[in-house]
Computed example of a mutant assay.
Amino acid sequence: MKKSISSKRVDFLQSLEDFRGYSDLTIKSYDEAIKEALEYVEILEEEKSTTMNLMPYRIKISHLNPKTISKKLSAIRTFVKFLNGNGMKISLKADESIKVPKTLPKPISHKHILQALEHASFYEKLVVTILYTLGLRISELSSLKLKDISDEWVRVLGKGNKHRDVPLLHSTKELIDKYMSDNCPKIFLFEANDERLSENSLRYTVNKVFKRVGLKVTPHQLRHSYATALLNSNAPIADVSELLGHSTMATTQIYTKLGSALKQQNYNKAHPLCGDEQC
């Protein structure tokens, strides 16, 4: 039965790309979790259904941090849901969720972003500026097409193949226009050998820019910076949620907690009674 289940893995991964619009990196993580799980799960076959016991696998990965375990189990649940939707009857055993502590995202301050841009080449400045002023995921930047860029808006293809329109600053548009004039891309804004530039290449560019000023920064942190800046300037959370392409507003609310944490830190530094001993 494991062979039969494993044979559906490729179809499942293809569905993640075709119907959910997942990035190559995300699909790879799903694939690794499923292959690993199938080595350890116990398959119990009955007359009309099959049970997949996750306990042996959960024991195997129990040393990992809760967030990693949760992601692996989520990948398996999604895979089993796919199998059930394609004619198989599989139930999960030992599928209890685990509590994952919510960590606040770590945005980069506007000051540090400007500092990094002072030492960036034109191309590097464009990549960082787009991520910071549009709040894109790295996969969305990699797949950004010329036809989706207008004078004032950018149409973004996000998760689940859902489109959203994000306002384009005039200063960012000027950088894009100069880059297009100098490089003449054909389909995608960023290309290599007539194909879209890989996410890893764009990610490396961001890492390199901030490394020069002694910071370790990921593209996703620039997305956090975008969201936090908008919310701290009193942008409505519903608007920010839509601009980020979040499926629910609950995902965006973590940034409001971050804003409160920053306000608390600033208050502790500023109030005359909040010395080190009192606060």
Results as ranks from 00 to 15, higher is better:
residue 229 A to Q: 06
residue 40 Y to H: 15
residue 64 L to V: 05
residue 161 N to C: 07
residue 216 K to C: 01
residue 148 D to N: 15
residue 54 L to N: 06
residue 110 H to A: 04
residue 137 R to G: 12
residue 116 A to L: 07
residue 161 N to D: 02
residue 152 E to Y: 14
residue 150 S to A: 08
residue 218 T to M: 00
residue 106 K to R: 15
residue 135 G to R: 06
residue 79 F to R: 01
residue 60 K to Q: 13
residue 33 A to C: 05
residue 101 P to N: 05
residue 189 L to A: 12
residue 83 L to Y: 08
residue 154 V to W: 05
residue 178 K to G: 04
residue 88 M to K: 08
residue 175 L to G: 12
residue 52 M to H: 14
residue 16 L to N: 05
residue 248 T to K: 10
residue 142 S to I: 10
residue 42 E to F: 08
residue 119 H to S: 14
residue 184 C to G: 00
residue 128 V to W: 07
residue 60 K to I: 04
residue 251 T to C: 03
residue 168 L to D: 10
residue 96 E to D: 06
residue 212 R to N: 08
residue 119 H to G: 02
residue 48 K to Q: 07
residue 56 P to R: 07
residue 239 D to S: 10
residue 226 Y to T: 03
residue 113 I to D: 10
residue 31 D to V: 10
residue 124 E to N: 06
residue 182 D to I: 14
residue 278 Q to K: 08
residue 127 V to G: 13
residue 228 T to E: 01
residue 141 L to V: 03
residue 15 S to V: 04
residue 72 K to V: 02
residue 236 P to E: 03
residue 195 E to D: 05
residue 207 N to V: 11
residue 55 M to R: 10
residue 164 R to A: 10
residue 211 K to M: 01
residue 40 Y to Q: 13
residue 203 R to L: 02
residue 68 T to N: 01
residue 250 A to Y: 01
residue 208 K to W: 00
residue 108 I to V: 15
residue 101 P to Y: 08
residue 59 I to N: 11
residue 253 Q to W: 01
residue 67 K to D: 06
residue 194 D to Q: 04
residue 249 M to F: 00
residue 17 E to F: 13
residue 79 F to C: 02
residue 67 K to H: 06
residue 277 E to F: 06
residue 212 R to H: 06
residue 240 V to G: 03
residue 156 V to S: 11
residue 116 A to S: 09
residue 16 L to K: 10
residue 72 K to L: 00
residue 133 T to W: 14
residue 259 G to I: 00
residue 25 L to Q: 10
residue 249 M to G: 00
residue 70 S to V: 04
residue 94 A to L: 00
residue 223 R to Q: 02
residue 226 Y to L: 04
residue 258 L to S: 00
residue 42 E to T: 15
residue 198 S to A: 12
residue 96 E to F: 02
residue 129 T to G: 07
residue 52 M to Y: 07
residue 245 G to A: 03
residue 213 V to Q: 01
residue 109 S to T: 14
residue 134 L to S: 12
residue 58 R to P: 03
residue 232 N to E: 05
residue 58 R to Q: 09
residue 99 K to Q: 04
residue 221 Q to M: 15
residue 278 Q to E: 07
residue 6 S to P: 02
residue 31 D to Y: 15
residue 44 L to D: 11
residue 234 N to K: 05
residue 150 S to W: 05
residue 98 I to K: 02
residue 196 R to I: 02
residue 73 L to M: 13
residue 50 T to G: 07
residue 165 D to L: 11
residue 19 F to T: 12
residue 18 D to G: 00
residue 120 A to M: 13
residue 75 A to S: 11
residue 80 V to R: 01
residue 226 Y to A: 02
residue 12 F to Q: 15
residue 17 E to S: 11
residue 142 S to T: 12
residue 147 K to C: 11
residue 147 K to I: 14
residue 148 D to Q: 12
residue 157 L to Y: 10
residue 144 L to C: 09
residue 168 L to F: 11
residue 176 I to K: 13
residue 149 I to W: 12
residue 188 F to R: 04
residue 222 L to F: 02
residue 182 D to L: 15
residue 119 H to K: 15
residue 146 L to S: 09
residue 47 E to W: 02
residue 61 I to K: 13
